[in-house]
Amino acid sequence: MEMMTVKIKRFDGRNSYYQKYEVPYEKGKTILWLLTTIREEQDPTLNFTSACRHAICGSCAVQINGNAFLACNTPLDDVLETYKTMNLTFEPLKNFEVIKDLVIVWEPKMEKMTKVKPWIIPGEEGSKEIGFLQSEEDFQQIAAPTDCILCGVCASECNQLAVNQDGYLEPFILNKAYRYIVDTRDGAPEQHLKPVLENDLWKCLHCMQCVSQCPKTIPLTDQIAFLRSATMAMGELDNQGAKHAYAFHDDVKNKGRLNETMLPIKTDGLVQTALTKIPFALRMVKKGKINPLHMPKQISGIQEVRKLYEYAEEVKS
């Protein structure tokens, strides 16, 4: 019989250590089957959470060989095939506090979520009497974000969160804010949006981990782009993120290409650039990486590119 070696990171409240189990391989099972089998047949002290077994309750997410998975809807065979191995290492989700073994604490995350006011702030249009009506199309806007099952996979994989736990919002919190901002029944989107901006919205690294691993395929990074656009539409343009984005936007319009020499100045301003980016710039110049005198020429076809800009403006309005 083919055996799998399963290492699980245990934590008893004080010490953490890896424990090894040998489990006979069976075809066509799920990751949750594997955990349950270990608990039932080998070690009743192993702690993990699960409930629905249908990718609905969101309680069974774990890290396996470096990536986060929802245990109940992930085929074991897929994971073995992905890592080309019979050795699996289980750990609790990253970027969460751990209670025991694979069990993590959700309360602080829920507390943090209240920052974005995850509830509808009713607008003028509705009332108790007439209700709060939505068209089919309006509803479709919140259909994808409400698929979130709060499993924590995105947060576990988020690279910004890994280095900025206090400052940054978990992608599922951004999703929640988005969900109320686009809800047509909500009368105060800025009240959800402001806290998003203030909690390092522009620090998203665009690494695509969240959107690539979400078991519900929620378009998290498109949402982040939307949230950024929305803050700029609100007039929040005087920050590094917005200025950086506009540097690209404007360079393409003017020349077609990015002017890397001017980028720091456009993003940070002259004074900040002089303080922080000069050593970097000198290094680049010295190695011949940046030629400070190289100013991109206008590309051939720049008039046509500007027509695309004009047209995009028309489409917006």
Binding site: A245, Y246, F248, L258, I299, I302
Partner: peptide
């Protein structure tokens, strides 16, 4: 006559 791809920034605008 290629242009910059936007480098993951232009879609924010």
């Amino acid at each position: 006559g290629w242009t910059c791809c936007g480098a993951s920034h232009i879609q924010d605008i």
